[in-house]
Nucleic acid binder design. Structure first.
Lengths: 344, 344
DNA sequence: TTGTAAGCGTTATCAA
DNA sequence: TTGATAACGCTTACAA
């Protein structure tokens, strides 16, 4: 009753050739008469033959899958606008090659390294994406030791044998600061991401540098953690400063939206009393009130390019070049406005 | 240079036994002398042997992986608070069993069915999660045809051979409505999800039923699509009604937060002029201003239970019971307040 | 140009 | 209680 799926042997016998020839024909390898190739392909088609990943995997020692490890920590995982779109981009490449994406979510009490180790020990994937890069990221050496090909999302600061797909966060951050400067702000504060992250410090240093270029100093730089809760905390501290900033630049939208709420809860009007800007252009940015001025990248494209780059490595390319993606673009909405008049 | 991973044959020769015995010992099967079992286990340990998923897969015709198909449609994927937590819950079960989670994101131009078909044809998984159930969901028959075990998230309305893990949306919705009734509201509107979804209609019918039990009719029921953009649209229509509702119940938080923004943009004060409630208790719900009254479920637990249930099926259990999860709980915040006085 | 056979690392069947 | 040996479905030398 259960229809067994046809194997290469079935195709062979139907086409009246050997298994070896079928394999050659199916993989489009030279050295077979065109007539027999046609015959084999026809037979395979009539039988509805599909290659067995399992058998191929065992035979050629490949998994035909790529891996992504993310932590279960809500700070990284929950409602982050990056991963869903990134994953969709990755899949758009994988689905055309018959590859699968294996997601490894690191649960409480484990380190992210455990996730990569599991993936490597189980030989579940042929390569992995290295996201949320840290300074002196220990995972790079780990992956080298595990012999697992990888592509890093953004460029690590230490030595790395892996190709990097990068999206420079600095122009976007600069554009936001520039925009605020043009609105007349001079007391601008920043709520940064955790300094362990490469992209967090890239944004905060660009923030500082852009102000410096205009001859200004930051009103303050608060450490956030990319979560809404952290955004609230940081915002409260900023609003309690003796000389309250007139504008706050957040390292992501979640903190910015939370900050917006905190400012409003404190009785401030945005942008009249305080301008607020985010980073990511997440879905809600456009729809909160007032709409959030932010910076928009293309995480789907990021996923596509990262998958293509990783696949070059997996396919055996020895020199895979880094790829630089176009920087994020400023999106001006209503949460930023002209600086309030100084009450002296 | 490259250290080959030890195989079962290596363990066998080191322990001085046959491959067959090693396999028995490693799988803890009866019929071996305790002494040899110990000897084999010791040898395996010294060699650092790990089972090869690939070989096992081919041999026993199992993938040791479960699959989840989600659409790339931003409406479902982006910034949905459910999936990340759900996936984390799933992983917490899979990681203890050496299973992997294969994510299949359906890209533009494909149907979700294509995703399941790919998973089945490539024999990538032993079972799948069926999420976002629709009325008369065609995927159920598809999975039956594909011979792919599944567990449905919530109970389908048609015939289904698969176990269901359910979380009744009605008590949560009723609690919200009840809360608003107690605050004196009588003109309460609803922004629903797409009627094709089982959970969307469960929520809207619970909304209507709870009002009816209090002798009231809905002020209006608008069709939303679970996205922020859709939430804005629906809210604008509601606010333009001749008799504006004094409270709006949204079928999820994203629409509610967008609706909050729309109301504020229209010059209304929440909750003085309008009460707003969501569904999900997403991260931002607590931090927008005013904090969003909503309803909280436990998607992590949902994932855990769904994975356990699916695994029973995968392990060959013939009668797997449905599991009912505790309903979502009302979380009262500042976005709901006493009904405004009627201006007659 | 094609067929044969070995191998990938397990599990499972049968003798011994 | 154990050891051979044959699958599983494919790739790939090596022969013919």
């Amino acid at each position: 009753m259960v229809k067994q799926r046809p194997t290469i042997a079935d195709v062979a016998s139907r086409a009246g050739v050997s298994k070896g020839s079928v394999s050659f024909a199916l993989n489009g390898r030279p050295g077979l008469a065109q007539a027999t190739v046609d015959k084999i392909l026809a037979a395979a088609d009539e039988l509805g033959w599909r290659p067995s990943n399992r058998a191929r995997s065992l035979s050629v020692s490949k998994a035909f899958a790529l891996g992504l490890v993310i932590t279960r920590d809500p700070a990284v995982l929950s409602s982050d606008p990056f991963f869903p779109a990134f994953i969709a981009g990755v899949e758009s490449v994988l689905s055309t090659r018959g590859q699968a994406l294996v997601l490894q979510v690191v649960t409480a009490g484990e380190s992210e390294a455990d996730g990569y180790r599991r993936l490597a020990q189980d030989a579940r994937v042929d390569g992995v994406f290295l996201s949320d890069l840290r300074h002196d990221d220990p995972r790079i050496q780990l992956l080298v030791d595990l012999g697992l090909p990888a592509v890093t999302l953004n460029r690590p600061d230490g030595e790395s044998p892996f190709p990097a797909v990068t999206l420079d966060d600095r122009p976007g951050t600069s554009a936001v600061v520039q925009h605020l400067l043009e609105l007349g702000h001079t007391r601008i504060a920043h709520v940064a991401g955790p300094p362990a992250f490469v992209h967090a410090t890239a944004r905060s240093s660009a923030f500082v540098a852009t102000l410096a270029a205009a001859g200004l100093k930051p009103a303050a730089v608060e450490a956030g953690d990319f979560t809404a809760a952290g955004g609230i905390e940081a915002t409260r501290r900023l609003l309690a400063l003796p000389k309250r900033p007139t504008a706050i630049v957040y390292a992501n939208d979640r903190m910015a939206i939370a900050g917006l709420g905190a400012a409003q809860a404190a009785g401030l009007t945005v942008p009249d009393d305080l301008s607020i800007a985010g980073f990511d252009d997440s879905e809600l940015a456009e729809y909160v009130h007032p709409g959030l001025t932010t910076v928009r990248a293309d995480p789907f494209r990021f996923g596509e390019v990262a998958a293509q780059t990783l696949n070059q490595l997996v396919d055996g390319a020895t020199e895979v070049p880094d790829v630089e993606l176009p920087p994020a673009q400023l999106v001006v909405r209503r949460s930023t406005g002209t600086a309030p008049l100084e009450e002296t």
